[in-house]
Write a protein that binds this DNA or RNA. Structure first.
Lengths: 230, 230
DNA sequence: GCACGTATTTGATATTTATCAAGCAGTTTG
DNA sequence: CAAACTGCTTGATAAATATCAAATACGTGC
């Protein structure tokens, strides 16, 4: 594929500042793949042969433990994932599956490592990307340890609300069972929590959410101005 | 201070491969500080002016939310911390305090960023360090979401056991209230969980732990060969 | 439009975990 | 040495959350 085919990619922070020749080289060996929904393309424990970049669609990162699995993160376009495993050439800690049909750009890890070694600007961008992801997961861990389930749901809706530029009404980004797992609760509990939120400024009916009273929701979620970046 | 004064530092993976001149430069502006126990030297929301490297002692990273606080991580020597905030020049997401008297090397963030930009080997090492820390916190989040409190304690003891090369008996690394917070439970519950473990291969009496039957402990903690690296 | 499979909701109950309140043990301090 | 303090433990209870079971809604394929 040609880099020019997908303009969003070159403008990604990760690739925006790198040397054009190096960019052409790694994009020359990258390939775009189309995946159907519900396809697991990365399995925990496997080798990270490719850096993945989600162009469009929706991807779920999850971990498996014997019989049960837990959602760790939703990946939205345009965004890279599993950079840490690809860079350190280690085993995946998480599995990944598509939730909707998705287009994903695959960049051979080895090529990426070489490019990072040669191109300081790319190295800096990769470092920044990794640092941001680190900070994000610190936020997730804080959220999990500090809030209980209802509060986590409230905080999640606040984040979505912000991400969608304050849209009064929006759709949940994934099935409720996935959201439930992401928030560390059961689907049954999420359902109940959704009803409860009616008394706290948010009306959730099926997959659609209405933010009626952001202040009330914030009173419940107690977002921290530092760790939660709303 | 001179880098030679503290030989462990130069042999840290982060600094082992960098150019000697650059190393001399950043070490020339670094300074070693001695902190008494229970001193908070980093506050959530502050600016990350220095990369911290714990030379000896013990440091707790924690987050504060209004009145209550939660332990996120124990930092043991010799190890850097808050690299992500120092590199991206952002606010701290966590506070840090010493648990015991500690010696900490402070490297000005700005200097570090400059050195990373100039020295590819240092950049690579920093990237690897960050990637490792990212993977570690993924492990923490997985642990928190997949296991309940007793299982988390069991897994924690297994990790300690491994870290201490399989020593049959060892001391808990910190006060129990800190361990409890780290494991996401109350001190009361930790106390009860410690008693319960007697039936699962570990005897915890006060601060000392005896691993009697690792297999039994593993049956409880169900360590994952991939995500838990025992 | 209907039947089927799947996701969600709702209710009843059980389990896990936290909270509150003492009591106990080890340390520090006067 | 006693008093005060602190951290840990224990017991009783309450709150949060999960589990199980069933009913309802929803979308898909026919």
């Amino acid at each position: 594929m040609r880099a020019e085919e997908i303009p969003e990619i070159s403008s990604l922070p990760l690739f925006a500042t790198m040397q054009p020749e190096v960019r052409d080289e790694i994009f020359g060996s990258a390939f775009l793949q189309v995946f159907p929904p519900q396809l697991t393309m990365i399995e925990t424990g496997g080798r990270a042969d490719f850096l993945h970049i989600l162009i469009d669609g929706l991807v779920e990162l999850f971990t498996v433990d014997g019989s049960r699995e837990v959602t760790m993160q939703l990946v939205r376009p345009v965004s890279s994932f599993i950079l840490a495993a690809a860079y350190t050439d280690q085993h995946y800690l998480m599995s990944a599956r598509t939730l909707t049909a998705s287009r994903i750009l695959l960049i051979p890890s080895q090529l990426l490592r070489g490019a990072i070694a040669r191109d300081g600007a790319l190295a800096a961008a990769a470092m920044t990307e990794l640092a941001m992801r680190y900070r994000n997961i610190v936020r997730s861990l804080t959220d999990m340890k500090m809030r209980q389930t209802l509060e986590r749901l409230a905080n999640f809706l606040l984040l979505e609300h912000t991400r969608l530029d304050g849209a009064v009404q929006f759709q949940l980004p994934a099935e409720k069972r996935v959201i439930a797992s992401l928030l560390g609760m059961t689907a049954e509990n999420l359902s109940r929590a959704c009803s409860t939120l009616a008394g706290h400024g948010a009306i959730v009916s099926g997959p659609t959410v209405q933010i009626v009273d952001r202040t009330a929701l914030e009173a419940l979620a107690r977002p921290d101005p530092v760790v939660d970046r709303h």
